[in-house]
C-alpha cells in the first residue's frame, strides 16, 4: 500500500479537541486522514455522510475532554464506542490494524479494555485505570519520554530504542494504575511498555518530569500484539520544529519529535 492510500479515521465526538492536529500529523506523514464523528460510523446521520470503520486502515482517538469527561475521563466515549461499534473495533484490532489513542484517547482505550489487554484483545471491563495525577492538578508542560519498546509497537517501529523525545503533556488524569501487583513486570515481559517519562538529561524522572506519578514512570503502552498504542503526551503537538519548546536552540532537521510516531506507522503500512 502506498502511503497516500492509507486512510486514517480520526474519531471525534462532542468534547474531543485535538482532532485537527491529529489529522494534520497523519497527513504530514503521508497518509490520508479524515475527521469522522462517531455518528457517521453508527449510521445516525445523512446517507452521504455515513462511513464504515472497515474502510479505514488506522483508527486514531484524539485528545480533549470527550463528553465533558463526565463520569470518568474517557468512560462515556468508551461506552458509546462499545455499545455501537464494539464488535467492529475488536475486529479492526484483531485484523492487526493500528489504533492510536493520545491523552483522552489513551483514557478511552483503557476504559474500552483495548489496553493493556494482557489476556486477549479486549477485556470486558477495564483492567487498568488512568487515575488523577498525584498532584491533584492539571499538569501542562513539555515532558521528555524515552522509547523503551523492544520493537513490538508499530508506532515506534522506526524510532531508535532509548531515544529521548520532547513531547508535551497536558492532563489531569494520567497516572497508570492496576490492581495487579505484577502489572509492570507483565507489561515488560510482553514488550508492552512503549514510553517512559525521563528527565531532560535522560535520568530517572521525578515530579515534575513525571507529571502524574505513573507507576514505573510509564507514559505510553501498547497491546501484546503491538498494534494498539496509548500515550498521555501529545505527539501531534510537536510535528514541526516551531512548536518544539526549545526549537531555536535544539531542534535540528526541521521536524518535531512527534512526527516520527506518525511516520513509523505510515511507513510500516506503506
Amino acid at each position: 500500500m502506498k502511503p497516500e492510500e492509507i486512510r486514517v479515521c480520526v474519531l471525534r465526538i462532542e468534547g474531543t479537541n485535538c482532532e485537527d492536529e491529529m489529522a494534520d500529523a497523519f497527513r504530514m506523514a503521508g497518509a490520508q486522514a479524515e475527521k469522522v464523528h462517531l455518528k457517521q460510523l453508527t449510521g445516525e446521520t445523512f446517507p452521504e455522510m455515513k462511513r464504515n470503520l472497515e474502510d479505514y486502515d488506522i483508527l486514531a482517538l484524539p485528545g480533549g475532554f470527550a463528553a465533558g469527561d463526565y463520569v470518568r475521563a474517557g468512560a462515556i466515549f468508551a461506552a458509546r464506542i462499545k455499545s455501537a461499534l464494539g464488535r467492529d473495533v475488536k475486529k479492526f484490532v484483531e485484523d492487526g490494524k493500528p489504533v492510536l489513542g493520545v491523552c483522552n484517547g489513551f483514557q478511552v482505550l483503557v476504559e474500552l479494555g483495548l489496553l493493556p489487554a494482557l489476556d486477549g484483545t479486549m477485556s470486558p471491563v477495564p483492567t487498568a485505570a488512568l487515575y488523577t495525577n498525584d498532584s491533584g492538578r492539571f499538569e501542562c508542560r513539555p515532558t521528555v519520554v524515552r522509547n523503551d519498546n523492544g520493537g513490538r509497537c508499530i508506532f515506534t517501529s522506526s524510532v531508535e530504542r532509548g531515544k529521548l523525545m520532547m513531547i508535551p503533556s497536558a492532563h489531569a488524569e494520567g497516572r497508570l494504575m492496576s490492581r495487579d501487583l505484577d502489572f509492570i513486570r507483565k507489561l515488560e515481559e510482553n514488550d508492552q511498555v512503549v514510553f517512559r517519562y525521563v528527565r531532560d538529561d535522560g535520568g530517572k524522572a521525578e515530579y515534575p518530569w513525571n507529571p502524574n506519578g505513573s507507576e514505573s514512570d510509564i507514559a505510553g503502552i501498547c497491546n501484546p500484539a503491538g498494534n494498539v498504542m496509548g500515550m498521555m503526551p501529545h505527539p501531534e503537538r510537536v510535528v514541526t520544529r516551531f512548536t518544539h519548546p526549545d526549537w531555536t536552540r535544539n531542534c535540528p532537521g526541521g521536524e518535531g519529535d512527534g512526527l516520527q510516531i506518525f511516520r513509523s506507522v505510515v511507513d510500516r503500512l506503506g
Binding site: V71, R72, A75, I76, A79, E111, V125, P126, T127, A128, A129, Y131, M177, S178, R179
Partner: peptide
C-alpha cells in the same frame, strides 16, 4: 456500575 459508572481498578 459495571458497564459505566465505576472502574473496578480504583
Amino acid at each position: 456500575c459495571v458497564k459505566l459508572l465505576a472502574n473496578p481498578v480504583i
